[in-house]
Computed example of a mutant assay.
Amino acid sequence: MSRTNRERTEATRLALIEAARALFVSKGYGDTSTPEIAVAAGITRGALYHHFTDKRDLFRQVLLREEEAVAADIEAAAPEQLTPRQALLDGSEAYLTAMTVPGRTRLLLIDGPAVLGHAEMMAMDDATSANSLRQGLARAGLGKGAVSLDTLARLLSAAFDRAALEIDGGADAKEIRSAMQWLLVQALGPEKKR
């Protein structure tokens, strides 16, 4: 059965994104060229520029795909039937696990901000995993009163990112995960009796 133009277009875009991801992880953004990406994807350089404005645009799409995957893992770990407290705790574990996918920490927390800038990465994060955290905090009743929900979410998100960097750098993952769980429990306060 022949594929439609739309299916061919999506297959080409996906091949480029996957080839670019592999090269960005192994060589870094700066040392990866668009001809290399095209060759790795089995596509002409012209086709690459048909689908993406430039290498930076392709990199942005790689990062967006990574951000969406992290958010999906968090959402899967924190279904609606869990208590808000348990959803936050399970979601935090899911984030740290999702960030152990090889290359993901480098892409999202090191190269992403260096290439796209802090503001663009924050906007991307706010639309995906940071949004999950903000919603979880709101469901748990945090941010009502003396602490701004947005500020708390940004600071906790930064702590999670730092934890992911620590784990990626070889720190004791169990110790880091335990510290992040403790931090969340402190933010949540005492568990309310039913």
Rank of each mutant, 00 (worst) to 15 (best):
T4W: 12
T4V: 10
R8H: 12
A11D: 11
A15R: 11
L16S: 10
A20E: 14
A22M: 03
A22E: 15
F24V: 11
Y29P: 05
Y29E: 09
S33D: 05
P35L: 00
I37V: 15
V39S: 08
A40L: 07
A41M: 03
G42R: 06
G46S: 11
L48K: 11
K55L: 09
R56K: 13
R60E: 15
R60I: 02
Q61R: 15
Q61D: 13
V62W: 13
E67H: 14
E68Y: 04
D73I: 00
A76D: 09
A77Y: 01
P79E: 06
E80M: 02
E80H: 06
Q81A: 00
R85N: 04
L88V: 05
D90R: 12
G91V: 06
G91I: 01
S92I: 06
E93W: 00
L96R: 09
T97Y: 02
A98P: 08
T100C: 00
T105P: 03
R106V: 11
L107A: 14
L108P: 11
L108D: 00
L109W: 07
I110T: 12
G112L: 10
G117T: 09
E120N: 08
M121E: 13
M124S: 11
A130S: 03
A130H: 10
N131T: 00
S132M: 11
L133Q: 08
R134N: 03
A138H: 13
R139V: 01
A140G: 00
G141L: 06
G143S: 10
G145T: 04
L149K: 07
L149D: 02
A153W: 02
R154D: 12
L155D: 03
L156S: 06
A158Y: 09
I167W: 07
D168W: 11
G169D: 08
A171K: 14
D172I: 10
I176M: 05
R177V: 03
R177H: 10
S178V: 01
L183Y: 00
L183W: 01
L184E: 09
L184H: 08
V185I: 15
P190M: 06
K193A: 06
